[in-house]
Amino acid sequence: MAVLFRAYFASAYGGYVRKTKSGVPVNAIHGFVRYLTDAVRTYEPTHVAVCWDMSSKTFRTERYAAYKGNRPEAPDDLIPQFDLVKEVVEALDVPNIGVLGYEADDCIGTLARKYGGEMDVLILTGDHDLLQLVSERVKVVMLKKGFGNYAVYDREALLAEKQLTPPQVIDLKGLIGDSSDNYPGVKGIGEKTAIKLLSEYETIEGILANLDALSASVKKKIEADLDMLHLCRELATIYCEVPLTCEIDACRWAPDPERVGAKFEELEFRGLLKDIV
């Protein structure tokens, strides 16, 4: 979903929204396909799956009603593309995966954990929350501005750039919150202070075990927001045991040119067909 939204806003910022001759908006889908096919050409995966958010209501909104409550409604011309993009993914013979009550991130985490022990996994996203999933065989391919521009994060790159281990990505969000997801963290604790604390004490538990060693102001802030600290860490944690079904053989990347061609012809994506066949 992060990729679809990125594709929409990257192409609609000037006010023009690509539509078919019959008036169906397709700009987000067109951009999504370009992102997907460029990544496939670049990294040559043997298997591909796409995960989607299914609803704004998840187990996180049950825990914290304000979770993502600050996000505006999707633009009117993006809404019909939510279902249509899944038809395109299906035409590529790629599984659409989503489970009510969970976010796409949770489905991605579940698949990464399930298959990351037996094969290399690349997670294509624009969402930095997924950096917590980095492991020995799981890397995050972060979309940067423009097509074909990526930053690949393994453990070493994550530590070098952000001074964090994958589990510390979660603890950082517990401390500072996430404005885009609308949870606050510990009031008055910023990213610089949080990274310094995690560098010294490794985990939130380590920080709490050493409260008396902290400055009086930092100690006071943490003690005042202790419940929120734990809640925010919970909200930030990707759940990796979603009850989903996705057999690896169903994910093999082998699009049927005729099936893809028919769907692309319908959406007037003729120029993209060369990226598939």
Rank of each mutant, 00 (worst) to 15 (best):
G271R: 15
G185K: 07
S179R: 13
Y183H: 04
F9V: 02
W253F: 14
Y201S: 01
D154A: 06
N182R: 05
L133Q: 05
V121T: 14
A28E: 01
A49M: 13
F269P: 08
K68C: 01
A209P: 03
C107N: 15
K68Q: 12
F82K: 10
A194M: 06
I204Y: 00
L100R: 09
M1E: 04
T193D: 06
A12P: 02
D105F: 07
S217Q: 11
L122V: 07
G98K: 05
T237C: 10
A104K: 10
K187Y: 11
K86V: 08
H230E: 06
K221M: 04
Y16L: 06
S217V: 12
V218P: 04
T237K: 15
K139L: 09
L211I: 06
G188V: 04
R155E: 15
Y8H: 05
V48K: 13
Q168W: 00
H128M: 11
D105L: 06
P166C: 01
D178N: 09
H30S: 13
K68W: 02
P95G: 07
Q81A: 10
E202I: 07
P75W: 00
V169T: 12
Y8F: 08
I170Q: 09
L4E: 08
L131H: 10
V218S: 04
D171C: 04
G109L: 05
E265M: 07
F269M: 00
E191P: 08
S55P: 11
I238T: 09
C246I: 08
D256N: 13
W52H: 15
Y201H: 14
I176P: 10
Y67A: 08
T193F: 06
L158T: 11
P243H: 12
A7Y: 00
K274H: 10
I97M: 15
A151P: 03
G98P: 13
L214M: 05
G116R: 08
K114I: 03
Y64F: 15
F9S: 11
T110F: 00
G271I: 02
L78A: 03
I207Q: 01
A236H: 02
Y43D: 06
H47Y: 13
P25Y: 02
V138D: 03
F32H: 06
L78Y: 00
V260M: 02
I79M: 07
V169W: 10
G126L: 01
D120V: 04
L164R: 05
A10H: 09
G31E: 04
R259H: 08
F5R: 03
A39M: 06
R113Y: 06
A262P: 04
V3R: 00
E265S: 12
P75C: 01
K196C: 00
Y153E: 00
E241P: 09
D275A: 12
A236F: 02
